[in-house]
Design a protein around this nucleic acid. Structure first.
Lengths: 203, 203
DNA sequence: CACTCTAGGGAACGATCGTTCTCAATGCAA
DNA sequence: TTGCATTGAGAACGATCGTTCCCTAGAGTG
């Protein structure tokens, strides 16, 4: 489980403009891997189990990805895109700068209510493999840094002091782990309420 | 990796009043396992590696614990005790109810600054094995629930509304994961500042 | 001293890991 | 139809996993 990725450019380099047709081989593999890794952890899912779930032979699996770690990184890249588009969709629908900040927690509330929810896939992957896989640690850092930057932009747009941004990001992180472990989506509402208080106090 | 523990009583049942001498066999194993599992993840550390680190033969290892999962649970139990005593030591030293609430984040700041810090061991274990090991999921839930209860007591002592407690707990959780991934202890200060704002607003 | 018994070290076990390789089936040109 | 190149399914590989077991060293007893 080692490889040297150009980690500073892993996220955001969606170099396939003609991804087009929904179910090509790569997407089938990534979708199945995402479901399994997220539900059971990465090391608890062997290549044979992934092979069965995806309905793809080992040969074709390895023709698309050189190693298991590359599948894990592709899954994380995929999750990053889902997260980014999901959050910004709700944020863009909000009207006031304050509501745009709070929309982040509305996204969390919807996510936490999914049956399959089991915390942040990046935090899970980082805890499991961040200590032994530099590439997985790096992509996790990138994902979280991009979220921090995103919140910082929203805070700036709201005219609030920059110090508010990391506080709001911490609330979002804490809500994710709390919801994962308690199995309840209540943490999203708690975090949203706290965020509202912090935003109001920051003027 | 399966076993049926009486999960509702795993934490807090320290049934060995005469633990006395510091370095008995069990403690040696748990200490070595804690270091390795925390640094590299649980499944990345084999029994042979643990055996070498603890300087104990496999036979003696298995004479003390029936399976690897039992070692993991003992490590988590140990971490729970360290956390509980560490936090309450700082809390007890604080004078005002407000400072007692903020002392939690002071404890986090010290912890985050340790070289070995790599996030909350419970969150890491839950992400890695919570989906396949009910016992590990259960002890994680117990640990987090006990922290929630502890914060709720502090909030009640401060005369603040109960709704403040989950918000402060979420800040603590978020600080842990943020610090782990960014590799910086700044999140403790951010969380502490946010907590101060929330406490002040709750009157 | 001779014998028994216990405990411990570490080789060995079956299972499973990620990865590779063999070989049959297929498409296509002549 | 025949010959050839390419693909894919899944058996097989070496390594390593958690766990067990064999066998020796040494203490205790007569």
């Amino acid at each position: 489980m080692t490889s040297e990725h150009p980690v500073t450019t892993v996220l955001g380099t969606n170099e396939s403009p003609a991804r087009a047709a929904t179910s090509n081989l790569r997407d089938i593999i990534v979708d199945a891997a995402d479901r399994l890794y997220y539900a059971k952890g990465i090391q608890s899912v062997g290549m044979d189990e992934l092979r069965s779930a995806a309905g793809v032979s080992l040969k074709r699996l390895y023709s698309e990805f050189p190693s298991k770690e590359d599948i894990v990184l592709a899954v994380m890249q995929h999750r990053h895109e889902l997260w980014t588009t999901g959050v910004s969709a709700l944020v863009d629908d909000a009207e006031t700068p304050r509501d745009r900040l709070l929309a982040v927690y509305d996204y969390l509330a919807g996510w936490f209510s999914e049956d399959s929810f089991r915390g942040c896939g990046f935090i899970n992957a980082f805890g499991e493999l961040g200590g032994v896989s530099p590439a997985i640690a790096a992509i996790t850092r990138e994902h979280k840094a991009s979220f921090q930057d995103y919140v910082a932009d929203l805070v700036a747009d709201a005219g609030a002091p920059a110090s508010l941004a990391p506080q709001l990001a911490i609330l979002a992180e804490g809500a994710q782990t709390t919801a994962a472990i308690t199995g309840s989506s209540a943490a999203a509402l708690d975090a949203r309420a706290a965020a509202g208080t912090l935003i109001d106090a920051a003027r």
